[in-house]
């Protein structure tokens, strides 16, 4: 018990731990099969146990990272926008604004492999092979100057990597450092301060989200109307395209939240992790200026791929099946109605 903070009074703890073996089973559930356990029991211990056999190089990792991670985490793992930075921040933990990255903060490399393999990429978790995960982890280490560019990470040498902040953690010590001081005995009730001054005001910073929700909804609706007007104008030129159903468009805007991290639409939309999508509907694929498409998508575009409701629906259902080798690390939309809604929404951006 010494390694845990004291959670429960000693006697209660002894009772808790002694009793379980006495209970009679209910005979519910069934035995888990070895294949089932193997499929889910993926967590990796800090000592590296349960690591899969395999390896991956920094060199391979750079490409894999660029295709799957860089959109949010930056080409050099330096981060992008509000997304987590994975590299940098050495010796900043005692500073006013510490930069906590894999290199500067994470105590165990096992955590990196475990998390990347099970939870990344965002929107397409568990689609990367074990070897490629080794390569990605190797690249993250390289980005933090922890290994050289010719490094190959494997289950064999995994535990040889030294994490800079491995000794930077202590177990919760509030019971010693805090609780004894903040007690009934020390609580003051009368004349506790000579003088009370306001030293800071939230309104000075002014970062509280807008309170007039109705107004912003109306603004959004106004925007929608503008788009609709634009859509109708275009419709005259192309009478075969029906104006999208406003309800479907609204539903699509909601579904599009899943895409917004990478794709921008609307006035002034710029390329991000993915290309901006104004005018995508009804136009040839792979034509947005300044966006570096995957060669797979460029090939498809050269083959005459045009984004219409049908092709977009097929792509959005299973991106990696429709265009093998696409950079879009999104697993796909499962519901047909979500796909139809997103198509309708995108069709409003000319």
């Amino acid at each position: 018990m010494s390694k845990f903070p004291k959670l429960i009074a000693g006697t209660a703890l002894a009772t808790l731990i002694a009793a379980p073996t006495l209970a009679e089973p209910f005979g519910l559930g069934r035995e888990a099969l070895p294949e089932e356990i193997a499929a889910w029991n993926l967590d990796i211990a800090p000592d590296g146990s349960n690591l899969p056999v395999g390896s991956g190089s920094v060199e391979d990792g750079e490409m894999i990272f660029s295709d799957n991670c860089a959109a949010c985490h930056g080409e050099f793992a330096e981060g992008s926008g509000n997304w987590p930075k994975l590299a940098g921040g050495d010796d900043t933990l005692a500073n006013e604004d510490p930069l906590k990255t894999v290199g500067s903060y994470w105590p165990y490399l096992s955590t990196v492999y475990d998390y990347v393999r099970r939870s990344m990429p965002f929107g397409a978790a568990q689609t990367i092979s074990d070897d490629d995960v080794y390569a990605m982890v190797a690249y993250i280490l390289y980005s933090n100057y922890l290994v050289e560019d010719d490094f190959v990470l494997s289950n064999e040498n995994f535990m040889d990597v030294e994490m800079p902040n491995a000794d930077g953690f202590i177990v919760d010590d509030r019971a010693e450092t805090e609780y004894p001081h903040w007690t009934e005995a020390n609580a003051c009730y009368e004349d506790c301060k000579d003088d009370v001054q306001i030293t800071m005001r939230a309104t000075v910073l002014d970062v509280t989200p807008e309170e007039t929700e109705e107004a912003s909804v109306e603004e959004a609706a106004d925007d929608g109307t503008t788009e609709m007007v634009a859509a109708e104008t275009t419709e005259e030129a192309a009478p075969e395209m029906a104006a999208p159903d406003p309800e479907l468009v609204a539903a699509g805007e909601n579904v599009f939240k899943k895409c917004k991290a990478c794709h921008k639409v609307g006035e002034g939309a710029k390329n991000g992790t993915g290309p901006m999508l104004n005018g995508v509907m009804g136009h040839p694929a792979g034509q947005v200026d300044g966006f570096r498409y995957s060669s797979a998508l460029e090939d498809a575009a050269a083959g005459g791929l045009v984004w219409d409701e049908e092709s977009l629906a097929a792509f959005l259902a299973k991106p990696r099946d429709f265009i093998k080798g696409t950079k879009m690390s999104f697993v796909g939309l499962r519901k047909d109605e979500d796909i139809a809604a997103v198509s309708a929404y995108l069709s409003t951006f000319k």
């Binding site: 845990f4 933990l93 903060y105 953690f169 202590i170 177990v171 919760d172 010590d173 509030r174």
Partner: peptide, 12 residues
């Protein structure tokens, strides 16, 4: 000092 507490589970 840059040291970090871990396993701070309880909400005071």
């Amino acid at each position: 000092d840059g040291t970090s507490r871990k396993w701070t589970w309880v909400m005071d």
